[in-house]
Amino acid sequence: MARAERGLLALGALAGLLGVAASAAATHMAGTDSLKTAAQFLLFHAPAILALAGLSAMGLTHRRLTRLAGAALVLGLALFCGDLALRALHGTPLFPMAAPTGGFLLMAGWLFVGVAALIPAKHEAR
C-alpha cells in the first residue's frame, strides 16, 4: 500500500476518533449543538475516507482522483468541523469563512468520488 493510502487510512481513523470524542464531549456540555454537528460529520465521513483509501490501494478507482477526493474530504472536515468545534468550545472561529470553505471542500470531495468512480482505472482502460 502506498504512502498516500496509508495517510488517508490514518486520517480517516483520526476523523473517527475525533468524532467519538466530540460526541462524548457534546453529551456532557450544554449549548453544544454545533459540536454535535461536527461529531456527526466526522463520524459520517470517516468510513468514506477509509473506503477511498482501500479503493485506491486496490486500483479499483482512478487512483489520482480517489486520492484527491480523500484529501478534499479530510481538508473539508478539518476546516468545517474544526471551526464548529472551536466555536462551541472556545467561542471563537477558526478563521473567517472556515466552515463554509470546509463545506465547499466536502462537496467537492464527494464530486471527485463520483468522477473517480466513472473514469476507469488505468488497468481497466485497455
Score class of each variant (00 low, 15 high):
59 G>Q: 04
44 F>T: 11
55 L>W: 11
104 F>E: 07
64 R>L: 13
25 A>S: 12
46 A>D: 04
43 L>V: 02
40 Q>D: 10
108 A>H: 05
59 G>M: 04
23 S>R: 10
71 A>D: 07
42 L>G: 03
103 G>E: 05
8 L>F: 01
50 L>W: 11
28 H>M: 07
95 F>C: 00
107 M>T: 11
3 R>M: 12
9 L>D: 01
13 A>L: 10
25 A>N: 05
55 L>D: 05
11 L>V: 01
72 A>I: 06
50 L>R: 11
83 D>F: 08
24 A>I: 11
30 A>N: 07
75 L>P: 10
45 H>P: 03
66 T>W: 00
38 A>V: 06
68 L>F: 14
103 G>N: 05
10 A>C: 04
57 A>Q: 08
48 A>L: 15
46 A>I: 03
63 R>F: 13
68 L>M: 14
82 G>I: 12
14 L>Y: 06
44 F>P: 04
60 L>D: 01
70 G>K: 05
94 L>E: 03
88 A>E: 06
34 S>L: 14
102 G>A: 07
61 T>S: 14
80 F>N: 10
5 E>V: 04
107 M>E: 02
103 G>T: 04
4 A>Y: 01
31 G>L: 02
11 L>K: 00
51 A>C: 13
54 G>V: 07
71 A>V: 13
9 L>G: 03
93 P>I: 07
24 A>W: 12
21 A>T: 06
39 A>Y: 01
